[in-house]
């Protein structure tokens, strides 16, 4: 029975069926499967297939986002078991992301956050209108590898520079990579304020992050 559970979990994710993905994950645990096995052989192949179908133009954002949410819910079931065994999932990296102070454009940042978490990053999304110090605190608290700063206004791009300064002043700039995005942001701007990179869409953000942390 356990043999079919893992492919069923995969299929549930591919079918964007969150309720089944969670129920099957619970069943798999109950049947004695190891959480790491469930993740590696059930969930990860599922989210990868969803990603492939998205790239192929067969799937659209709603499928991508719902599958990513389903994955998170299933992970939440497994989390206590992982902790009990003192195990961890290898994450592609810990990411802190948010839209900078004064700016409330949310959609692009959230899409990037979703794609990153679907691609194996552990993402802390701070939301919008985020003061520099909040970024700094979160980086400290989570020991983040990467910070993503979104700004959609020419007037708030400057706040990206302020976050960089705040990280500098707190002495933790060297510990993290900082990437930028948003409509008015350019690679030149990213360079000029000393960020580590720029991407103009969510897929690019994932590739950039993997490159920077790889």
């Amino acid at each position: 029975m356990s043999n079919t559970l893992l492919p069923e979990i995969t299929d549930a994710l591919v079918a964007c069926d969150a309720a089944s993905a969670v129920a099957l994950t619970q069943q798999a645990l109950a049947s004695g499967l190891e959480p790491l096995t469930i993740i590696k052989q059930g969930l990860v192949p599922g989210i990868e297939q969803v990603g492939e179908r998205f790239q192929a133009g067969e799937y659209f954002l709603p499928q991508m986002v719902i599958a990513a949410k389903a994955m998170q819910q299933a992970m939440a079931v497994l989390e206590p078991e992982l902790q009990a065994r003192q195990q961890r999932v290898d994450s592609a990296g810990v990411v802190v992301i948010g839209t900078v102070k004064g700016d409330i454009h949310e959609i692009g940042k959230s899409l990037v956050a979703t794609m990153m978490s679907a691609s194996g990053f552990q993402v802390h999304d701070l939301g919008v209108d985020v003061p520099s110090q909040v970024f700094v605190h979160k980086v400290r608290e989570t020991n983040a590898d990467l910070v993503g700063l979104s700004a959609l206004l020419t007037t708030t791009m400057t706040a990206q520079r302020e976050v960089l300064r705040a990280l500098e002043e707190s002495g933790i700039r060297d510990r993290v990579r900082v990437i930028l995005g948003g409509a008015p942001v350019t690679p030149e701007w990213a360079d000029s304020i000393g960020a580590d990179g720029y991407a103009d869409d969510a897929v690019g953000a994932v590739q950039l992050s993997k490159r920077l942390l790889g």
């Binding site: 133009g57 659209f60 954002l61 709603p62 959609i107 692009g108 899409l111 869409d201 969510a202």
Partner: peptide, 11 residues
């Protein structure tokens, strides 16, 4: 207004 039918492929 300035609504949009969100593009489901490109976001």
């Amino acid at each position: 207004g300035s609504p949009a039918a969100f593009d489901m492929r490109e976001g």
